[in-house]
Nucleic acid binder design. Sequence first.
DNA 1: CGGGTTTGACCGGCGC
DNA 2: GCGCCGGTCAAACCCG
Length: 288
Amino acid sequence: MEYTSLLNNSLDLNAKFVEEAPPQVVERSFIGLGLGTSVVNVKEEEKGALIEELNRVSAENKKLTELLTVMCENYTGLRNQLVLEQSRKRKAGSSNKNIHVLGLGPSESSSSDEESSKKPREEHIKPMISRVCVGTEASDTSLIVKDGYQWRKYGQKVTRDNPCPRAYFKCSFAPTCPVKKKVQRSVEDQSILVATYEGEHNHPQPSKVESNTSGSNKNSTSVSSAAPTMALDLSKPKPVQNVRGKLDAAPELQQFFVDQMASTLTKDPNFKAALAAAISGRFLQTNN
DNA sequence: CGGGTTTGACCGGCGC
DNA sequence: GCGCCGGTCAAACCCG
């Protein structure tokens, strides 16, 4: 449950913000404007609306946190199943492929150390494989995972183990950039997209803001604004395990969550309005 | 018209 | 050798 704790830590920032702003403080900052009573009444109304809004956002945050907890529980169950399956396969003596399911990346595959000394090291030949889970709306049928890079779809296939089609993407910078990704909905929860990345980009992100899988897809904007996605990079288990209670051990994850939260907040007009009101109130207070 | 998506065909690996 | 299955190709199509 390391991912759950991590998510709770990141998401609770908002909750703490709400909790740690006691009504008295808010009241003082608005009443202390030194304006007429009518204005104070207006500010009182605004304050009430803001508190209501904050409560609403807090409740929404709580719901999302619960949803993520369920997702993480599902993930843990699935991972346990897969680990069991893999250990069974290993015992059966099946060929050891360089596929690391759900973030059990090359760094964790210590079981093949003995074999790697005999065989030529495959890590230099085969690209690094990582997996990312992205929560989307279940009604959204597009296989879009926003990761900051531009992708060109080159195939789609229905696989045996999953009724949902799997989409195949190449980096738009191909053949210069060899990175490929596969996107498929989770069997357990179809609102979760599972993106499997192969290889590493040899170029910077084209754009962090308009990170869109398929440029011509018109659903992309509504997806990003109405249903902000929370991606869990499960490809790096070590940093995630280290961040129980604090995020400073995984700077890339930390940066990712900060980016996600920032983009989510800046896209919310209500938050903007509340922020503007709070800032203008603060300015008026300091001027008086 | 260029760039992207769609989708059926094709290919190669793997198990029997 | 054969069939299954995942991955890729490429022609047709779509869209700005």
